[in-house]
Computed example of a mutant assay.
Amino acid sequence: MTKSGKRWRTRKMRKIDTIIIHCTATQEGKNYKVADIERWHRERGFDSIGYHYIIYLDGSIHSGRPVEQAGAHCKGHNANSIGVCYVGGLSKDGKTSKDTRTPLQKLSIKCLLMRLKAKYPDAAIKGHRDFAAKDCPCFDAAKEYANI
């Protein structure tokens, strides 16, 4: 109990064993925001945004779902993973998968992954494509980030 008589809330930390990289599957150069992604996820029946982190075109890193909560980003792997999503993943035609990461997104993703690996050193870095028949993300995340 605290001095005010309120009970301490203890939050059980999840055991994180995987960091999963995603893309929003949106057209190259179109900058969507956390609110857009949350709206899309709620329209699909989720209670909130499914990803824990979102990387905008300018490289800024934004919080989505709290890391303490299981995500809603990779069926069968949400309980013990963190979902990181960058905005992009489709060419300008909106139909063709493409690695559209800007140089700032690439730098921010790498920096975020380094921070997450420092906190969860045993977590493997994978792409959503490693768990589902999708081009998400549109590059081999496990290979690209193997040395982090």
Rank of each mutant, 00 (worst) to 15 (best):
R44F: 01
A72T: 11
P137N: 08
G83K: 15
L90R: 05
H73L: 00
R101S: 10
I37V: 14
H22C: 07
K92F: 05
Y51F: 12
S91D: 14
I20A: 08
K95F: 02
H62I: 07
Y32E: 13
E28V: 06
Q69R: 10
K15M: 05
L112Q: 05
G71S: 10
K106W: 01
F46A: 13
K134C: 06
Q69E: 15
N80Y: 04
K92R: 11
R65P: 02
R115M: 10
I109T: 15
A70C: 09
E144Y: 01
R39F: 03
D99H: 07
R14W: 03
I16W: 07
G59S: 09
K95W: 01
L107D: 11
H62W: 10
P137H: 08
C85T: 15
G50R: 02
D47G: 04
P103Q: 05
I55A: 00
I125K: 02
V34C: 07
T102E: 04
D47T: 12
H73N: 10
E43M: 03
R101L: 10
Y32M: 12
G89D: 00
G89M: 06
Y120C: 02
V84Y: 08
C23A: 12
A70G: 08
E28D: 14
S48H: 13
Y51I: 13
D36M: 06
V87L: 07
I20N: 13
A72W: 09
S63E: 11
E38K: 11
T24N: 08
R129T: 00
K117R: 14
H73M: 09
M114K: 15
V67T: 13
C85W: 00
G83P: 08
A132R: 10
D17N: 14
K95T: 01
D93N: 11
A70H: 07
I55V: 15
A132L: 12
C74K: 11
G59Q: 03
G83T: 08
E68A: 15
Y51D: 09
S60I: 05
K126A: 04
R44M: 11
P137T: 10
G127F: 02
D135C: 01
Y32I: 14
I49A: 01
R101C: 11
G127W: 04
A25T: 06
G76R: 05
I109G: 00
I49V: 14
G76C: 04
C74P: 00
Q69V: 07
F46V: 02
L107G: 04
T100D: 00
A35S: 15
E28W: 05
G50V: 07
I54A: 06
Y145Q: 05
C111I: 11
G64F: 06
D140F: 02
K92I: 10
K117G: 02
H41N: 15
R42L: 08
S91C: 04
